[in-house]
């Protein structure tokens, strides 16, 4: 009972900001709610529409590529590389480089997007094309030709900093004598990483993987600002598609019901992914009390 009392503020927050909105969204997904705001129930009509929606396969593929591309390349791998490097170069330099990598996260999204739009402009006035022009190369339409690359890189540069911080803290929490002992035994830096650091930061690695998967599945703000999902839906992910349908300026009839059905699918995917991660990564063990008392 006391336990519940202690948990109640957190539980109330989850109830108010996740459970209730999720239930309302799910219910809305069974209606034809639009600009008229009439809750007319249409059964599985919106889901039937989803099955027939020819854009869905493209959007599903985009979502998978974006989520796992950003996660694999940046949020975990690059975050880990940054953490390893910045913890190997001495305290002050490490701190400086970590602070540097946090800058994009501190930048207001609209400003960050504006900078990227300038970098990626398809004309000679863009930064990348300006550099190409300096060496006699013709301009490239970066967003048209590499829509996936653009959304992965622009999101990943921000996303990597979260993994970097968590991994760097975990690495610094490793007792130094393990590393000293390894060095005395002649271990190289790579061997230290492979045999000491990685096994000891297993939990943060798995946590970031799971957490960032769920976070990427529902994030779209930088894509909205940089590519708007285009060209021709080439960078439109599931959550952005739902957003565009429900709220974009030119959606006309505001098909809230259909957009809610799309969002519901995302909630279900997120819930299933959580369970899978919980099982595969054995998070129960991470949450369990330690078998021996640790210092």
């Amino acid at each position: 009972m006391q336990g519940f009392l202690f948990l109640s503020p957190g539980l109330l927050l989850i109830l108010a900001f996740f459970i209730i909105p999720a239930v309302v969204t799910a219910v809305m997904g069974f209606t034809s709610l639009d600009y008229r705001f009439k809750w007319d129930f249409v059964g599985l009509g919106n889901y039937y529409r989803m099955v027939r929606d020819y854009l869905i396969p493209r959007i599903l593929v985009n979502t998978l590529v974006y989520t796992f591309g950003t996660l694999g390349i940046f949020n975990v791998t690059f975050g880990l590389i940054l953490a390893l490097l910045t913890t190997s170069v001495g305290e002050r330099a490490g701190l400086f480089f970590r602070a540097l990598w946090l800058l994009p996260r501190f930048t207001p999204p609209v400003v960050y997007a504006a900078i990227w739009l300038w970098i990626l402009s398809p004309t000679k006035n863009g930064l990348l094309n300006g550099l190409r022009a300096a060496v006699g190369l013709s301009p490239v339409a970066w967003i048209s030709q590499h829509p996936w690359g653009v959304i992965i890189i622009t999101n990943g540069i921000i996303g990597a900093s979260m993994g970097m911080l968590v991994f760097a803290s975990a690495i610094k929490a490793i007792p130094r004598d393990y590393l000293w002992a390894a060095r005395v035994d002649g271990a190289s830096w790579f061997q230290e990483v492979r045999h000491i650091i990685l096994p000891l930061i297993r939990w943060p690695l798995m946590f970031i993987t799971a957490y960032q998967t769920l976070s990427l599945l529902t994030s779209y703000e930088y894509i909205l600002l940089i590519t708007q999902g285009g060209p021709f839906h080439a960078s439109e992910v599931w959550s952005l598609y739902a957003y565009n349908l429900a709220f974009s300026s030119y959606s006309g009839t505001y098909p809230f019901g259909y957009a809610a059905a799309l969002a519901t699918v995302l909630v279900v995917i997120g819930a299933v992914a959580s369970v899978i991660y919980w099982r595969i990564f054995k998070f129960r063990e991470m949450m369990a009390p330690p078998r021996i008392e640790t210092v």
Binding site: S121, P122, T123, A141, S144
Partner: peptide
């Protein structure tokens, strides 16, 4: 017309 016309920002269009 550039094929990537839809990716040029409004300010760049107006200034160009």
């Amino acid at each position: 017309t550039p094929g990537a016309m839809s990716q040029i920002s409004w300010p760049e269009i107006h200034s160009s």
